[in-house]
Amino acid sequence: METLLSIEDLAIDFDQGKRFVRALHGVSLTVARGEVLGVVGESGCGKSITWLAALGLLGSRARISGSVQLNGQEIAGAPENDLAGLRGGRIAMIFQDPSSSLNPVHRIGRQIVEALKLHRGMTGASADAEAARLLDRVGIANATRRLREYPHEMSGGMNQRIMIAMALAGEPDLLIADEPTTALDATIQAQILDLLTELRRDSGMALVLISHDLGVVADMSDRVAVMYGGRVIEEADTGSLFDSPAHPYTKGLIAALPDIDGPRRRLESIPGTVPAPDRLPPGCSFAPRCAIASKICDARMPAFLPYGESQSHFAACVKCRDEKPAESARLSGNKHVLVPA
């Protein structure tokens, strides 16, 4: 599959006045054309700032290194003018709280037309007609009347639809959705997820779905990256990630989730809490909370290496390969390096 966006070794340091604190430790991710990449992790793991940094939205207090390429063209550190054309155009982003992303004092129509004018140079009646078409596209009835309303006159689900309509205004190749349904009720979440799936099927745009909800990510994604402590610790296609998770953290997350089907069982919780970015342990950042950690885990950060027979399943864990010796033994030609160089 053709690569649309590739992030290579992206690191972010935040200026804390006296010193810099590293929040992201070299993240590498790719998004193929038309693909859905799910990014999961708990709060503070760096899942949102990865994408904000990629779009140059972190402001001057963040020092960013690494490379971000869109269609092979470098956009990390690009001039603000170039980025402004890209954002909302080729790459669009929607956020958790739709009502705070919209301007409360302008009518919805004006805000959508603004996006159309910026990215597609449309004005006047043709822009109005296109705005109405977009609202219709995201499932809002009475589009022409709705264009004259203000954000506060609509529900949260409606506002998220409007945000999606604005994101579609630039006909993006990639939509980055940061917790798009977290603030919404269950039945409205189902509506928005269905809408995103449908739009993607029609337009072929790629989607990066950032969420703390494993269920949402499992349901929507082709491939999933799990983040912890500012690193990607496991990445695989959705099937193998949920059927045979490698990293103890991924396993723990799945086991900590209550079920809706099947028998009730006691939840398996992960002890402790996520470490603060300035207090990461020296080796594997999950080691202090890990049930199978040993001395080797404290020594250095484990490398991100293939796991199992699949060529697309990677995990940054030294111990997870010890647990399944039979499986690794069956592998031929793909020698596992247990201790990274």
Binding site: A190, L193, D194
Partner: peptide
């Protein structure tokens, strides 16, 4: 509808959601 709307890892791929 409420029960069917919950996405869980175990239910992935089974599209039987009732969307209100």
């Amino acid at each position: 509808a409420l029960v069917s709307a919950i996405p869980t890892p175990a239910r992935r791929g089974k599209r039987e959601r009732i969307v209100l």
